[in-house]
Amino acid sequence: MSTIAEMELPAQEFALRTTLEHVPDAEFDVVRVAAHDSKHVLPYIWATADDFEELDDALRDDPSVDDLSLLEDLGDERLYRMNWVDQIRVVIHILIEEEATILNLRGKESRWRLRILFPNRDALSTTYEFCEESGLSLDVRNIYEMSDTRHGLFGLTEEQHETLMMALESGYYDVPRDATADDLADSLHISHQAISERLRRGHRSLVKNALAVGPGDGRD
């Protein structure tokens, strides 16, 4: 069964270490990453910073970066393409050795958070062992087992998935609403407080795992 793991690494043990040291307010959100061989990783990265000139200088001087290209400049954030050529052992292992998929990868302050879809639980265990043997401080924060449905992809429990789908199908999210929280509670034979908590936790999981995965996002 496929397994999703949320993991953290110290910034000094990963790519862009020197950039984060010199531009501590910078934040990186990797939207796509591929490894074509054992020496290069090609990420597309959205970045924010108070001073983009300072960020560009730091990226050009970063020993883990090669072939830096600015693809989009939206004023308050920029999209870069680059090669990572140093401190990428764990990414190479995940993508090539374990044939896993990086769902989210975000760097902020002194940490990187990775959200990985592994083909099975053994691949996660092997990755953890690889990091221990390589002297990398991998911290596994959460583990989700995929089920026959897709709700595990977003960290939802079965009850949260059932409640959110019922809310959608009954018109709870319509404007104006065709169903209230009390209607959902009656259908599921639970209290108003219980339905409210399920909805809040389900919404939090969706936002956290689909939109805002990164170090310090949400509370574990």
Rank of each mutant, 00 (worst) to 15 (best):
159 E>P: 00
220 D>G: 12
74 L>S: 12
128 Y>A: 14
197 E>G: 02
152 G>Q: 04
73 D>E: 06
55 L>Q: 07
181 A>M: 15
169 E>Y: 12
79 L>A: 05
23 V>F: 08
189 H>L: 11
5 A>S: 11
14 F>M: 11
56 D>F: 01
15 A>D: 04
201 R>W: 01
42 L>Q: 14
73 D>H: 09
29 D>M: 08
136 L>R: 02
168 L>Q: 13
132 E>L: 14
157 T>V: 03
58 A>L: 09
212 A>T: 12
40 H>N: 12
195 I>P: 06
128 Y>M: 14
3 T>A: 03
13 E>D: 09
174 D>L: 14
187 S>R: 15
16 L>D: 06
81 R>G: 13
210 A>T: 05
74 L>H: 15
37 D>Q: 02
151 H>E: 13
38 S>R: 14
116 I>L: 03
156 L>W: 04
107 G>Q: 10
177 R>H: 10
66 D>F: 04
41 V>H: 06
119 P>A: 02
172 Y>I: 02
121 R>G: 01
100 A>M: 01
31 V>M: 11
206 L>C: 05
84 W>A: 13
161 H>V: 00
79 L>Y: 06
69 S>W: 10
204 R>V: 07
18 T>L: 15
31 V>P: 01
22 H>C: 03
172 Y>W: 10
62 D>W: 09
44 Y>S: 13
2 S>N: 09
201 R>G: 07
151 H>Q: 11
55 L>T: 02
191 S>W: 08
218 G>Q: 05
4 I>Y: 04
61 D>F: 07
127 T>E: 05
112 W>I: 07
36 H>A: 13
212 A>G: 05
90 V>N: 01
111 R>P: 00
52 F>P: 02
58 A>M: 07
6 E>W: 08
24 P>V: 01
64 S>Q: 07
201 R>I: 00
179 A>Q: 07
69 S>M: 11
198 R>I: 02
150 R>T: 12
79 L>N: 03
184 L>Q: 02
181 A>V: 09
38 S>C: 00
34 A>I: 12
16 L>T: 06
217 D>R: 13
57 D>T: 13
209 N>M: 01
205 S>K: 10
206 L>W: 03
61 D>V: 02
8 E>Y: 04
51 D>M: 04
60 R>I: 08
90 V>L: 12
82 M>C: 12
164 L>Y: 07
94 I>P: 02
